[in-house]
């Protein structure tokens, strides 16, 4: 009897120790990023947030302003593209608008989660090249002359790549939300004689917490993406303020900056990479807490 008790206690202690060991990397990452990031940001909080990056290897600290702004622009455009598509397609599949295409959409979107994100970035880059070639062929056919050039690196292609990364995450969350609507509620809504579209709108307000948490998960997913931006947003260390130029030139993002500056040999760039990592981590943590809270309340 005692031996069995001892064995069980030993087992439980072992499990606790192992789970603590498993948490060490997480805690370590969090503490290192927080410590080094706060140290850099504390030197000049507003400068780090708004100034342009400094000359590498100089004494100056500068800031990551263009990259913070770039991340915000990219994420806003990507959300504008990605969120409507994913929620609408979730409605399309769950509300049975099409018997054959619905399940197929569901299956394909679930496959999309597994795509390597670098491949998504590359294919968007490739698509730009193809479209340019196609337009130039048209130009030749109609004999207009001249060469039409689409800028390879710009916020729109970056946002499209991010939206493609985002869609499956938002989609699966919203699909689950719509699927979990109790049968009697759906029947009640339809019995009011609404068209399918009106009914879907009513139903989405019923599952809005599921939709919101899906959006949060999607946004925090694309916030931390670097690979799809390498061939699309490319990175820009300066503010571009003129109107059409913003959408025709490369744009920076915090992840691209961490990738580039973290690998560089220059101390002031590496410091700013830590600052960017800290800001990113904070935003993602806040989004995570909000989405957990929404799910908990549900």
């Amino acid at each position: 009897m005692d031996l069995r008790r001892l064995k069980s206690d030993l087992m439980i202690t072992g499990i606790i120790i192992i789970s603590l060991l498993g948490m060490i990397p997480l805690i370590h990452i969090f503490l290192t990023v927080a410590w080094r990031g706060i140290n850099v940001i504390a030197r000049d909080p507003l400068g780090v947030l708004f100034k342009e990056p400094p000359i590498p290897g100089s004494e100056e600290l500068g800031g990551i302003g263009p990259h913070v702004l770039g991340s915000l622009i990219l994420i806003s455009i990507a959300s504008l593209i990605g969120i409507p598509i994913s929620i609408l397609s979730a409605i399309y599949t769950v509300e049975g608008m099409s018997k054959r295409l619905g399940p197929l959409t569901s299956l394909l979107v679930r496959i999309m989660i597994e795509f390597p994100t670098i491949v998504i970035g590359l294919s968007v880059y490739g698509a730009v090249l193809l479209i340019e070639e196609f337009i130039n062929d048209l130009v030749k056919i109609f004999g207009l002359g001249g060469h039409i050039y689409i800028p390879r690196f710009n916020p729109i292609t970056g946002a499209i790549a991010l939206a493609i990364v985002m869609i499956p995450y938002v989609y699966t969350q919203s699909e689950d939300g719509f699927k979990n609507i109790p049968h009697h509620i759906r029947e009640a809504v339809y019995s009011l004689g609404f068209s399918r579209i009106r009914a879907s709108i009513v139903l989405s307000s019923y599952v809005k917490s599921a939709l919101l948490s899906g959006i949060m998960i999607g946004v925090s997913k694309i916030l931390s993406e670097t690979a799809p931006l390498l061939f699309t947003a490319f990175g820009n260390d300066h503010y571009v303020t003129r109107f059409p130029d913003v959408f025709l030139n490369p744009i920076g993002s915090m992840t691209l900056w961490i990738y580039k500056a973290g690998l560089s040999p220059y101390d002031n760039w590496i410091d700013l990479a830590w600052a960017a990592a800290f800001i990113l981590l904070m935003i993602i943590l806040v989004l995570f807490v909000i989405s957990r809270y929404i799910i908990y309340k549900r």
């Binding site: 479209i131 196609f134 337009i135 048209l138 039409i148 050039y149 689409i150 800028p151 059409p244 130029d245 959408f247 025709l248």
Partner: peptide, 13 residues
């Protein structure tokens, strides 16, 4: 639509 947007963007630029 893509082509139209592309052409407009190019000429605006």
């Amino acid at each position: 639509i893509l082509i139209i947007v592309g052409v407009i963007a190019y000429y605006v630029g």
